[in-house]
């Protein structure tokens, strides 16, 4: 087969930087981020969408990037955990994870943090979860556990992850504008 058929040119905007790449069609966004762009925050935990450790934001929505072909993301805006901080001050969700000691080994943490950022945005937009009751603003541990149910932590740091996301939700109004 003509090798030109096996690769594609794509343009990605990752953490504000535009990248023009020619990639094997089989590349997942996770592999592209890690292997081609040296952004190793997103982790390959399970490679089939079960664990959430590869969670990044694509056009503002949290997704498992192990299940996305990079060529299908042509023209997308991608934010990884590396793009949440400006290099000096941490993103409030990152601060909350530190303050609450919301991890042990840290492997799942980039995915947890990106997922929490996506979850807080969904909450702010009034998107209901399966445990959302009526039109009350979402809050409470049950709500957060449901919203974060796509991210596993094999150290089982869940109690402090829930507290960290709760803290960040309380402060969300202050920093909403700067969240990617």
């Amino acid at each position: 087969m003509d090798s030109r058929l096996l690769t594609s040119a794509v343009t990605l905007r990752v953490n504000g930087t535009v990248h023009r790449l020619t990639l094997d069609n089989r590349s997942t966004l996770l592999d592209t981020l890690r292997e081609d762009l040296d952004l190793t925050g997103a982790k390959k935990g399970c490679d089939h969408g079960q664990c959430g450790s590869c969670t990044v934001l694509v056009d503002g929505r949290r997704v498992n990037c192990c299940l996305l072909l990079t060529v299908a993301c042509d023209g997308s805006e991608i934010t990884t955990v590396e793009g949440l901080s400006d290099g000096w001050s941490l993103h409030p969700v990152q601060e909350a994870f530190l303050a609450r000691d919301a991890f042990q080994c840290g492997y799942c943490t980039p995915g947890q943090v990106c997922s929490a950022v996506g979850a807080l945005r969904e909450m702010a937009e009034g998107r209901p979860s399966a445990v959302t009751v009526g039109t009350e603003p979402p809050s409470g541990a049950a709500e957060i556990r449901e919203r974060m149910s796509g991210n596993l932590c094999r150290c089982a740091a869940y109690p402090n992850i829930v507290r960290a996301v709760g803290d960040a939700a309380e402060r969300a109004a202050e920093w909403w504008e700067r969240t990617p």
Binding site: G49, G52, T55, R61, R62, V63, N64, L67, L68, S115, G118, A119, E122, R127, P128, S129, A130, R147, S149, G150, N151
Partner: peptide, 26 residues
């Protein structure tokens, strides 16, 4: 889930149980 819970309540309930929030976004 967000846009059709009144017109398609059964499907919206089922959609809540698909995968995880990340999977449901795709």
């Amino acid at each position: 889930i967000d846009e059709l819970p009144t017109e398609l309540p059964g499907l919206a309930l089922a959609a809540h149980t698909v995968g995880s929030p990340q999977i449901r976004n795709r």
